[in-house]
Design a protein around this nucleic acid. Structure first.
Lengths: 148, 148
DNA sequence: ATACATGCAAATCTTTTGCCCACAG
DNA sequence: CTGTGGGCAAAAGATTTGCATGTAT
């Protein structure tokens, strides 16, 4: 609840001459707390409210835009029309996403891209890769068991 | 202008019990003509009009949705809020995208993902990779020459 | 003190949907 | 002939923006 604010973030903001307002601190904390999970603008607003901080939707959009531009977050767009963000911590936590075209569920896969990557995923996860993006779309195990 | 309609596509449509209407044929032709270029719904409408075919926007959306579901196209979402589509021709034409965070230009890179991939791109293209997705965001050579 | 941020509400833009008519199979 | 598809216009979402007020530096 009363989570720490990362030094790296503070430095990044300072270096880019961005003010550390109350609202921005709250957003940064939320991003920190959510590690490798991607959160949408709406979710950030909800999580802030749970913490008794009311953030206007436009402030969140503007802040996320800045964070993206200065390289603090990765911005995802998983074909559902909603932007989702997650903290960028260099390549050490690099992971990719399996997106099921049927149910829309997004699953994380850690590890770098290798040659037998596609087969491996199918064997390990039952997830059939249709084409390669490091957003990897396909069908998840559950949906494969239903129809074509 | 009077481009061919691919057999593979026709089969795919038939197998999925989708009718080959005049409008769908036009869309398929446009996708074919545009090879590995990604086109937006609006662009499809424009290209059709150039060919004297008027397509309503809802028809295009509905068709693209079907094409995506049956695996005929790849659907991209490059963080600008606009869906872009391109024909999916198996992995033979696999390519990835460099997306400039400053000017928004999207550049294609062919070839599979290798280990020294990031360095290689920087050396070859002057494009600095910030983080890995196979949508690869960063800054393009031109924008690097301006500011941070 | 002053430039930069926030909040609100309106505007914009993309995508989806309901309904009725048209046409492919 | 029948059910699937197209067009239109309205609706629904997500995101952006103008403007007046607040605040970090």
């Amino acid at each position: 609840m009363d989570s720490k604010l990362d030094d790296t973030m503070i430095n990044l903001m300072n270096r880019n001459h961005k003010r550390l307002t109350y609202q921005r601190k709250e957003i940064l904390k939320i991003l920190n707390d959510n590690g490798n999970k991607h959160v949408s603008v709406e979710e950030i607003q909800r999580l802030a409210k749970e913490n008794n901080v009311i953030l206007s939707i436009s402030t969140i959009y503007r802040t996320m835009d800045i964070l993206h531009k200065i390289g603090a977050v990765i911005k995802h767009n998983f074909g559902n029309g909603i932007a989702e963000y997650e903290i960028f911590e260099g390549n050490k936590n690099a992971h990719h996403h399996l997106i099921c075209k049927k149910c829309g569920r997004i699953e994380e896969v850690f590890g770098l891209v290798g040659d037998n990557f596609n087969n491996q995923i199918f064997v390990e996860k039952g997830f059939k890769v249709e084409y390669q993006r490091l957003e990897i779309y396909g069908y998840c195990k559950e949906c494969m068991n239903n129809s074509k």
